Amino acid sequence: MHLSARCRAKTRKGNECQSGAMRNGRCRMHGGTSTGAPKGNDNALKHGRYTALAAEWRRRLAELRLSISDLVTRSDA
């Protein structure tokens, strides 16, 4: 094991990583970016607050509130 190839990626301290390298030349920690969850993964959706549809609803609601407050202030004058 001590003769195997090393990762040699730069660590936060500025030293070289001493972990054993995989086939791509880096260790499991520095091997590259994750591909993430597959597209359309329903298991990753916890709630719908940040979906495009929810954002559009919040935008429309804010516009409606502004227009209502304008109507109320105009009718008071």
Rank of each mutant, 00 (worst) to 15 (best):
L3D: 13
L3Q: 13
L3T: 14
L3K: 00
R6I: 02
R6V: 08
R6W: 04
C7K: 00
C7G: 01
R8D: 02
R8A: 01
A9W: 07
A9G: 03
A9H: 10
A9T: 05
A9S: 08
K10D: 03
T11Q: 07
R12N: 08
R12Y: 09
G14Y: 12
G14N: 10
E16M: 04
E16W: 07
E16I: 05
E16L: 07
C17Y: 10
C17R: 00
Q18R: 07
Q18P: 07
Q18L: 12
S19M: 07
S19C: 09
G20T: 13
G20S: 11
A21N: 00
A21W: 00
A21K: 00
M22N: 02
N24E: 03
G25I: 02
R26H: 05
C27M: 07
C27P: 02
R28Y: 01
H30E: 01
G31I: 09
G31T: 06
T33R: 04
T33Y: 06
S34V: 01
T35H: 02
T35G: 05
T35M: 04
T35A: 03
G36I: 02
G36H: 04
A37Q: 04
A37V: 04
P38N: 03
P38Y: 03
P38V: 05
P38G: 04
K39V: 04
G40Q: 06
N41S: 09
N41P: 03
N41I: 06
D42Y: 05
D42A: 05
N43S: 08
A44C: 07
A44R: 10
A44I: 09
L45D: 11
L45P: 07
L45Y: 12
K46L: 02
K46D: 05
H47F: 09
H47V: 08
G48L: 13
G48K: 12
R49W: 02
R49M: 11
R49C: 12
T51Q: 11
A52W: 11
A52D: 13
L53I: 13
L53D: 13
L53V: 12
A54Y: 09
A54L: 12
A54N: 10
A54S: 12
A54K: 09
E56L: 12
W57Y: 08
W57P: 03
W57M: 09
R59K: 06
R60M: 14
R60S: 13
R60I: 13
L61V: 09
L61Q: 10
L64R: 10
R65V: 13
R65S: 08
L66Q: 14
L66G: 14
L66D: 14
L66T: 14
S67E: 03
I68S: 15
S69W: 07
D70A: 15
L71N: 12
V72D: 08
V72H: 15
T73I: 14
R74F: 15
R74C: 15
S75E: 13
S75H: 15
D76L: 15
A77G: 15
